[in-house]
């Protein structure tokens, strides 16, 4: 009897482990493409959590399901079950294991966070562990002869404007965020009015933008392509329309784009909030409640005239 119990438990554990490992592998396919160095770290951590979570979920629900299937009272059986009130050993075990797991998960998350190092040095207070992790810089900033200056990100209701230092020191503006691949990017995030959130799902990165404050934010794009930037902190009426394209390109293309943009004469870019607002102002029958009017379409050097068109993830 004892032997049979042990065999059953070992068998169940092996099955659960296999199922959990499989789910952990599936987890990678639930994300958009991995387009930054940080996204790889986060996906690995998430996969680990999915595997662990699957084990716990199946373990608990499997036991519940087993009870529901095999411990049903007979139709006329009104007797009680065995009066087991507890088991100290078992209770200590199921307190100790979660404590160990919490320390493990939190420690792993801490290491990943240290490696990401996404906040600028002004904000970051390092609590170094004995072994510090090397940051996930793909390459030092200065390589490729690229300007190491920051790109300023200006958010407002409801538009994104990106400011690049031009070749002659002038302010080159765009409503599309162009980034050189495999370089550490330093953004300075500012907001003109309310809270916004800088969120590029393909980079797995997000940072709220706070008025009256400049927030440094850094990361390393690693995959050429066009991705979507979304506002992630609710910012009012046209919040959902506040999107932009992020174009990650080779350093050569990036330089060419910057040179081209700096030579263009500023013109109004497409802006969905303003477009919709003007359209609804013309309607007389069905109108919503009063709203903060959107800023006019931003007048920028590089001004796409159509909606963001990054491909689906």
């Amino acid at each position: 009897m004892k032997m049979r119990l042990i065999v059953t438990l070992v068998g169940a554990t092996i099955l659960l482990t296999l199922a959990s490992l499989w789910m952990g592998q599936q987890a990678y396919s639930w994300f958009p493409p991995e387009a930054s160095a940080e996204s790889k770290l986060i996906d690995d951590l998430f996969s680990f959590l999915v595997a662990l979570g699957t084990f716990i979920f199946l373990g608990v629900t499997g036991t519940l399901a087993y009870s529901v299937l095999f411990y049903r009272a007979g139709r006329y059986d009104y007797s009680d079950g065995p009066p087991i009130e507890g088991n100290v050993t078992l209770e200590i075990v199921w307190t100790a294991i979660p404590i160990a797991l919490v320390i493990w998960i939190a420690g792993y998350s801490y290491q990943v966070y240290e490696q990401m190092d996404v906040r600028g040095p002004m904000e970051m207070v390092h609590l170094h562990m004995p072994e510090t992790m090397p940051a996930a810089y793909a390459q030092p900033l200065e390589t490729g002869g690229l300007p190491s200056a920051e790109i300023a990100v200006q958010a407002k209701q409801w538009a994104w404007i990106f400011h690049y230092p031009g070749p002659g020191g002038q302010d080159v503006t765009s409503t599309e965020l162009h980034l050189p691949v495999d370089h550490r990017i330093k953004l300075a995030l500012t907001s003109d009015d309310v809270l916004h959130g800088f969120y590029v799902p393909a980079f797995r990165l997000k940072q709220d933008i706070i008025p009256n404050k400049t927030i440094d934010f850094e990361f390393t794009p690693t995959r050429i392509g066009t991705y979507r930037l979304r506002d992630s902190q609710y910012s009012g009426t046209y919040f959902a329309a506040m999107q932009a394209d992020v174009v990650v390109e080779s350093p050569v293309d990036y330089q060419a784009w910057l040179a081209d943009a700096s030579s263009r004469v500023p013109s109004p870019a497409y802006n969905r909030a303003s477009f919709e607002y003007n359209r609804s102002a013309e309607q007389s029958v069905v109108r919503g409640w009063a709203t903060v009017p959107p800023a006019p379409p931003p007048v920028v050097n590089y001004a796409p005239k159509q909606a963001p068109d990054s491909p689906p993830a």
Partner: peptide, 12 residues
């Protein structure tokens, strides 16, 4: 609760 995961899924 894990900060790196939350940086991706926060507000989603």
């Amino acid at each position: 609760g894990s900060v790196p995961v939350d940086i991706h899924v926060n507000n989603t």
